[in-house]
């Protein structure tokens, strides 16, 4: 909410900046706020690091189902729940206090929901990789902070990515984190070409899931079972 005021002040100083007007900027703020819960943008959400540390992961690995898909299914269920309880309230609050843009066109809603769903998978793909790193590092606190720094800053959660100046701006929009927050938010605002945006998101989801699958295979050889 405080962030909304800062963005309002910025757009009052520079109306029309980055192709948004003040209402768009406020909407961006509250829509992205709603992403925090479902996508666990501050990190965590997976029980995997804890299970690796406690050794319970050994049980997961002998189950006749893929560890990655198993975790993904768990995560999507959690995301759907959190979208309802953590995502909708801040949006309704924003709508009540500041008045946010609500797309009237059902096509835009469909594009947003598709983008949002893919973004949840991208976010899972990233957090799964972070979780797997615990197999090698044995402690997840360091990477957790690193992941939080990368995710909050490069996803557009702190400031919209289109405010980033010059080549740095081009770089951050090409990184996977942009597919988590900036892209679905732009789909909501109708500021992004739908097919290209969804394609980029699917690309990142596929890359991260692919890396996760490779990582899972490596873990089968590497995993250290803790406990006595």
């Amino acid at each position: 909410m405080l962030r909304a005021y800062v963005l309002i002040a910025l757009w009052q100083a520079r109306p029309g900046l980055a192709g948004y007007d003040v209402a768009d900027a406020v909407t961006f703020c509250f829509v992205t706020q709603a992403f925090i819960g479902p996508m666990q943008l501050f990190g965590g959400g997976l029980s995997l690091p804890e299970r690796i540390r406690s050794g319970d992961v050994a049980l997961d690995l002998v189950r006749p189902a893929s560890l990655q898909l198993w975790t993904l299914a768990e995560d999507i269920g959690r995301a759907a729940y959190l979208f309802a309880v953590r995502g909708l309230p801040p949006m309704l609050l924003g709508a009540a206090v500041f008045g946010i843009v609500v797309p009237a066109d059902p096509g835009r809603w469909a594009a947003f929901l598709a983008g949002f769903a893919i973004a949840v998978v991208v976010s899972f793909g990233w957090r799964y990789l972070i979780a797997l790193s615990v197999c090698w590092l044995l402690d997840d606190r360091g990477v957790a902070v690193l992941s939080m720094v990368l995710t909050t800053f490069f996803s557009g959660l702190l400031v919209p990515l289109n405010l980033f100046p010059g080549w740095f701006g081009d770089l951050v929009t090409a990184l996977p984190w942009a597919a988590m927050v900036q892209m679905p938010a732009d789909l909501y605002l109708g500021k992004a070409p739908v097919p290209q945006t969804l394609a980029v998101q699917v690309f990142w989801a596929a890359v991260l899931l692919g890396a996760g699958a490779l990582g899972t295979r490596a873990v089968r050889h590497k995993v250290v079972i803790q406990g006595g």
Partner: peptide, 18 residues
């Protein structure tokens, strides 16, 4: 330092905030 980065990015777009 991220918070400072946010301030710097905002001021890359404007010369005065409020």
């Amino acid at each position: 330092a991220l918070d400072v980065a946010v301030v710097l990015i905002i001021f890359a777009n404007t010369t005065a905030l409020a």
